[in-house]
Write a protein that binds this DNA or RNA. Sequence first.
DNA 1: TCCCAGGGAGGAT
DNA 2: ATCCTCCATGGG
Length: 322
Amino acid sequence: MANSMLAKEQYSFEMSPALVNGPLNLVETVLSAQTSEPEWIRDGRSFTDVEVFDATPVKYTVSQTGPANDFTLAVRAVAPSFSEETIGQIKHHLVQVLGLKDDIGLFYREFSKQDEPLRSTFSRLRGLRLMRGTNLYEGLICSMLSQNNSAMLWNRTARLMMQYYGRRVNFQDGSFTFLFPTVEALAKVNTDELQLKTRMGYRAKPVVEVSRMIANGDLDLEVFRNLSYDDALARLVELPGVGPKVADCFLLYGTGRLEAAPVDVWIHRIVSRLHFRGRKVSRLKTARFLRERYGQWAGYAQLYLFDYARRIKPVTKKTTKA
DNA sequence: TCCCAGGGAGGAT
DNA sequence: ATCCTCCATGGG
C-alpha cells in the first residue's frame, strides 16, 4: 500500500470536470450563508478552509476561473506531506462539501415552467450548490448560532469559538489556524465564559447543554441520518435551542437531506408573497409547502428562494422627520 | 436612535 | 393551533 510519496509540503491540482455534475458558481456557493460550517476564509475569488484527514490537518485553497458552464476549479493544498491517498481524500471532500455531484441541471429543467418563480433565479445563481458539512456536531452548533442572528455575526462567533476552544494547528508554510472545538471542549466550558468570550449571547446555554448531552452519551447525532424525516425533526426540536428552523438547517446542511427546507424570516416572507397572496401562513405550513412542491429539491429551492427574497428587499423604509 | 438578523421558549388566547 | 414577549449581540 506504500504508494509513491509526493514528499512536497504543498501540492496543486485541478478538479477533473468528471468530478463536477453540471455548472458551478463557487463564489455564490461559499458566500450564500449556509450553516454547515463556518464560512471559508475569502481572498478575492479564492477560499481557504481546513479539513482533518486521518488526524492530519490539511489546508486547502480553492478558486474557480471561468463561467459556471465552462470553468476550472484549482486547488492548492498545504500538509506535512502528500500521497496519492491524500489527494484523493481532498477531492472526495470537495465533491461532498460543495455538492458537486448534485445534478442541478435537472433541478433547473424540472422547475423552469412559466408559473415557477424559481426560474427567474436560475440565470443569476447558475451553479449555486448546496454545501454539506463533514461534521454533524459542527453543523448543529453553527445552525444553533444562526438563530435570530446575522450571517456575519454568527460566523464571527464561530471563529471566536475556534480561537478560544479549538486546537491550534500550524502549517508548513508558516500559517496557522484553529480547528472547530470538540464536543468535550464545549461540554466542560463555563456558560458565562463562553458567552462573554464568543459574544454568542443567549445561545451559550443551549450550546453547552447540547454539548454535554453528546459528551454524556445521551445524544447521538448519527441517528438522525437514518430516521425518517418526520421522526428526525420531531426529535431534534426536543433539544434546547433547537426549533423547526435550526432542525431543518441541521438536516439539510449537516446530514444532507435535500428534502429539508429551513424556513427563516426571508423564506417565510417570500413564500407567503409568492404562493399565499401575501397572507402569512405559519412557518410549519411554509416548510410543508416547500417539501410538497419541490420534493427532493426542497432544500435547493429554499437556497435559491433565500437569495431571491434578499434581493428584492426594499433598501430602507423610513425617512427622518424635520 | 431604532430596527433587525437564515428563531426559540414559555405563556396566554 | 396561533399569537405575544423576551431573549444577547452588533451592523446598518
